[in-house]
């Protein structure tokens, strides 16, 4: 199976366009509130000398007031991996702060997204095979409800019952306080232990969508003519379900997975805050509290970049699963 070069170019082009839109939005955001970041920083650091302001202005590319020039400088600095300097943790660079936070968020998301996708499509298929049964009614009803639950609330409840009442899990953070006392194996176990409740809170909410979408697609596939024909031919039910119906039913679920990514990422950011999990969400929350605008700006860019990259990868893998796509 080959993926046409035209298809790859189109998808890469679209990803670049999306990235450009995200960067442009990011450029204009701080200009919504006016003010001058250099003077703001200088006033915050209580070192507000004119020399510092001049140096910071140069650093932020503000010496030339032409907005087009600033827009251009913004791209140049980004291309060099420069996301600016944190107000709160001056002179820490935003890139460094994000670099330390990103692995926690990505880890949390990877585990939660994969488990919720696999369990979600499995439950959805089970429901579609017995539509109207008590199992179907309970799973669909529960999914409808969970679909409506705010991520941060499940997180708070899990923290209250799982960590505070039952004392079964830690009350937050990703590492134990005395991390240096543990060997590598002990540390891994404890990192996983700290991740259980955050992952669970993401799972509970995000599974629901996969269940409902898969169930719907599976019901649709089971009513298609070729499935009816396969049944009429007398093929075993298992073969009809898995080899005939499931293959077409799962493709839209895969697309749904990518489209829902933005929501899960948003959920993960909120969940991290509740669990004081040291990821990007926690960084954004602290930055909001401290009015640390460069960090907020940089965090959005990194999150957008990750989501766009994940979508691009999915787009490029998709034709291998469904050859019809690259033909259009």
């Amino acid at each position: 199976m080959r993926v046409s070069a035209r298809y790859v170019l189109k998808r890469v082009g679209f990803a670049l366009l999306t990235l450009w839109a995200a960067v442009t939005a990011d450029f204009f955001l701080p200009r919504l509130m006016g003010g001058n970041p250099a003077e703001y920083i200088a006033s915050q650091t209580s070192l507000g000398s004119p020399q510092l302001i001049a140096a910071l202005k140069a650093e932020f590319g503000l010496t030339n007031p032409n907005p087009f020039y600033q827009y251009w400088r913004y791209f140049v600095e980004l291309a060099h991996g420069n996301l600016g300097v944190s107000y709160e943790y001056y002179p820490s660079r935003v890139g460094t702060l994000l670099w330390h936070a990103l692995p926690f968020t990505v880890g949390l998301l990877l585990v939660a997204v994969v488990i919720s996708f696999v369990v979600g499509i499995f439950l959805g298929m089970l429901c579609a095979w017995r539509p109207g049964s008590w199992f179907d009614s309970i799973v669909v009803g529960t999914s409808f409800y969970l679909h409506a639950v705010p991520y941060f609330w499940t997180a708070m409840l899990l923290l209250l019952f799982g960590a505070f009442d039952l004392k079964a899990f830690p009350l937050g953070h990703a590492l134990p306080a005395e991390a240096q006392n543990f060997g590598p194996a002990g540390l891994v176990v404890r990192v996983l232990w700290h991740g259980v409740l955050p992952v669970l809170s993401l799972l509970l909410v995000s599974i629901a969508g996969h269940v409902l979408v898969t169930r719907n697609n599976m019901l649709q596939a089971l009513s298609e003519d070729y499935v009816v024909l396969a049944r009429a031919k007398g093929l075993p039910e298992g073969q009809v379900r898995w080899r005939y119906a499931a293959r077409t039913a799962l493709l839209p679920s895969f697309t749904g997975l990518m489209l829902s990514l933005g929501h899960v990422v948003g959920g993960a950011l909120l969940t991290e805050i509740v669990f004081s999990y040291p990821g990007v969400g926690q960084l954004i929350y602290q930055a909001i509290l401290n009015h640390d605008y460069p960090v907020i700006q940089g965090a959005f860019l990194i999150v957008a970049l990750c989501v766009i990259a994940a979508n691009l990868m999915a787009d490029l893998v998709y034709p291998l699963v469904d050859p019809r796509v690259s033909l259009t």
């Binding site: 990803a15 999306t18 839109a21 995200a22 939005a25 955001l29 919504l32 489209l259 990514l261 933005g262 929501h263 990422v265 948003g266 950011l269 954004i284 907020i296 700006q297 965090a299 959005f300 999150v303 957008a304 989501v307 766009i308 979508n311």
Partner: peptide, 12 residues
């Protein structure tokens, strides 16, 4: 659809 709107919302 690709840009995570809930995150954009929070940032704005």
């Amino acid at each position: 659809q690709v840009i995570p709107t809930i995150v954009l919302l929070i940032i704005i």
